[in-house]
Design a protein around this nucleic acid. Structure first.
Lengths: 102, 102
DNA sequence: GTCGTACTACGATGACTGTCGTACAACACC
DNA sequence: GGTGTTGTACGACAGTCATCGTAGTACGAC
């Protein structure tokens, strides 16, 4: 299962990068959707009031922070929340964020 | 016990503001120290390689986000982590962040 | 091959922000 | 009162970043 795009390993994930990635409303919304759906999802399937290029930018930020995994699959890319890694490194963090009402 | 400085009420605390406040390394360090000491602390007692004005700026950011409480006390100001509020709103978030090794 | 789809790359831009220095205010102590 | 300590206010500045449009690449279907 080759992985084109660079992802940080679990050990390389830094808390400040994760927090910074999650601090943006658009990215937070993406993460919430990914958590709700709980599966891999095509990049573009989460609808947001932003342009395609901005979406790409946010996906890269999340990927480089170690929050999501992005794997090419034909013309699209499948996106997955790295819940196991995040829970292992920062237990409770993700649940705490998702617990926030809206 | 009058409270000069404006603080958001528990209901007004927004997750994005909290995450944004915690995403900065200096502010994260302050919060870690406050959590470790687990009491009110004079503003200036946490030593950081930054100027006084920058420290003030960070303290305001944390206060306005609802992460800390700041109460004037003579010539200094006592700073407290709003752990109860944060735990109630985002259970696990704070512990997850503090669990991060360094 | 040609088309359409899905996404990226690049450059631009406006806004935000972390940093600082200086000047100022409030308080405690002499 | 005067002095020192502690922190704020304000303005400046450089760096970051969220946003966009345009152009380009990769893949699947026809």
């Amino acid at each position: 299962m080759p992985d084109d795009l660079p992802h940080p390993s679990r050990a390389e994930i830094r808390i400040e990068a994760v927090l910074h990635a999650l601090a943006d409303p658009m990215r937070l919304h993406m993460v919430r959707e990914l958590a709700r759906l709980d599966t891999s999802v095509a990049c573009g399937s989460i609808d947001l009031p932003i342009s395609k290029s901005t979406r790409t930018h946010h996906l890269r930020t999340l990927r480089e922070a170690g929050v999501i995994t992005v794997v090419p699959a034909g013309t699209t890319r499948m996106t997955t929340l790295r819940r196991a890694d995040l829970d292992a490194l920062f237990p409770g963090l993700l649940n705490g964020i998702l617990a926030a009402e809206r």
